[in-house]
Design a protein around this nucleic acid. Structure first.
Lengths: 317, 317
DNA sequence: ATCATTTAGGTCAGGATCTGTCCTCAACTT
DNA sequence: AAGTTGAGGACAGATCCTGACCTAAATGAT
């Protein structure tokens, strides 16, 4: 019955490509009689996909939103758009869905035909990298590691520790965690026989080792909690304290909660605390607020802003 | 045969959720015999989905990337991640796939269950809007209009022209075009009986009018070309000319081609020309380059940068 | 090297399902 | 009021599906 099944898929595909479909046109396209189309529609409804129908002249079938997600039938361009969209969603670190985006990306890339994969890679190469954004994570690394987590497959990679030393690692990956602007891997290090966290931007040539492992119990509630605890021990290099000359609500609407805290001082001012490892990024965040401000620390930030101010002054003549 | 079809879909879903599946486990999950699983795998292969298999102990089935895109079977969270990803991809205006992203978004939203739709909307509301970004387009407007284009349905909306006058429009939508940082609708205006272009950020309460129309032939090669021609007649409000104190190649890698042109002057300098309607955005683009520069015009830009410089100077103390 | 495990696939019989044809109804637009 | 479109029952013939049973081939562990 591969005939009937594939026809049902083709029917779903058509119903997703356009909204309104008269029965006769569907019958023609699929090469079956109108009666069979009606039966197929009935089958789809039986499977839980709500197909509306209008009677009379200009009557048609129409796939509506139901209670469950139907299989998505994408053409090449749409698949590419989704891959690119998920990559940016995974990278932007403001939406709060980074981990899910990576999971979806792994699922998509597993079945993405090679020629589309190449096109996505080409588009990725054309994407600009902001010079103040600091080190970035390659999307490929992200999906390789996420796939290893999902499939309980050992992972091998080279790691550059904070002091610059290169080591080769073999780990049992547990989870990918997105915190602040960075990605971390929580994994059991097989050589050191202990849990470790790795920053993805310090990691090179990750590849599945080919061997499976049985998942271990991570100490702590979950990977995000574990990671947050580790992070609390090693805070950001720069912790900024400023006064903003604008109402707290105005600012709160522009700053995602994990990128710092806002406290009102009075009607026209508020206190803003935020941290980062990168001065350039920190400064840009402040500039983008678009309001007057006063820096209370750290001195490096004030220095950086003065340098930026001087550059603008010189540039503007 | 709804039984067999839905089992095939369930099988595809399982194969997408994890990489390796032993046959016995699949048989258990789907409640059929192992022989039927083998036959189902055979069917999937017959439909063009390449299912690998490993024999021996630890043997398993594995869905590989083929030559065509299989139907994507998503869970709730993944569907949300894709919706959010496509929204950002449609909004960012650097990837060059904005139109396709909107098309995919329309397809997705047409079948996205209501409770997921609400969650996407909630996430969208939490997204921050940069104050220098200028007027933004609501994702809802984008999808409503794109759907009307796709389905050849008349569209009604309120339009605020450049001088602030409000008018009610009834149009036959032709295409959505993304140019620069903006979205435009190319449509046949039924009242004026001529082609018009509309900026989406000036448009309110778009809604399908319920009536269908038969598509007209647009003058010009395609909508993008038509739009580009119209745009050439009405350039940006501010056209910036600067010298950057950095090698042309360095800059070229950071600037998407439609956001201005780079011409080398010598080894260490290049000329950068770029335009925008919004001084804040223009200035931010320059700041983000992270290199020294000299502004040659327009005077408003220099003025704006001096003001920004002063703000930073004050803020840094 | 041997053994156990896993996929591959042929065959068979009974039952279920699918398809097209023909027909009658109901709903809706013009 | 008429014409168009979807809904769906009935029927017959062909097709397909499933589980059971069996043998072959590949592969990792002991």
């Amino acid at each position: 019955m591969t005939e009937t099944s594939s026809r049902l898929l083709a029917l779903l595909s058509l119903l997703q490509a356009r909204r309104d479909w008269p029965g006769t046109e569907l019958a023609e396209r699929l090469g079956v009689s109108g009666r069979t189309i009606r039966r197929d529609i009935e089958r789809l409804r039986g499977l839980g996909y709500p197909v509306e129908s209008l009677t009379g002249p200009a009557g048609c079938y129409r796939l509506r939103a139901g209670t469950a997600m139907p299989p998505l039938l994408l053409d090449d361009d749409e698949a590419i758009a989704i891959a690119v969209g998920l990559r940016t969603a995974a990278r932007t670190s403001v939406s709060g869905i980074e981990e899910t985006a990576v999971r979806a990306l792994v699922k998509l890339e597993q079945v993405l035909p090679a020629h589309l994969s190449r096109r996505v890679a080409a588009l990725g190469a054309a994407t600009i990298a902001s010079p103040v954004a600091g080190p970035t994570v390659e999307p490929r690394h992200l999906t390789v590691i996420a796939a290893a987590c999902r499939d309980s497959e050992c992972l091998r990679f080279a790691y550059r520790s904070r002091d610059g030393a290169q080591t080769q690692r073999l780990v049992e990956p547990h989870s990918l965690v997105n915190l602040g602007r960075r990605w971390y891997l929580v994994a059991w290090d097989r050589q050191r026989e202990d849990w470790r966290t790795f920053r993805l931007d310090r990691l090179e040539r990750p590849a599945g080792a080919g061997t499976r492992f049985s998942p271990r119990q991570l100490p702590g509630r979950d990977a995000a909690a574990y990671m947050a605890q580790r992070m609390a021990e090693a805070p950001n290099r720069f912790e900024a304290r400023l006064t903003l000359h604008a109402a707290a609500e105005t600012i709160a609407r522009r700053v995602p909660s994990h990128l710092g805290t806002i406290r009102p001082i009075d009607e026209q001012r508020c206190e803003y605390r935020t941290g980062d490892d990168d001065l350039g990024w920190l400064a840009l965040r402040i500039v983008m607020l678009g309001v007057d401000f006063t820096v209370h620390g750290p001195p490096e930030l004030a220095e950086h802003l003065r340098a930026l101010s001087a550059r603008l002054q010189r540039g503007a003549g």
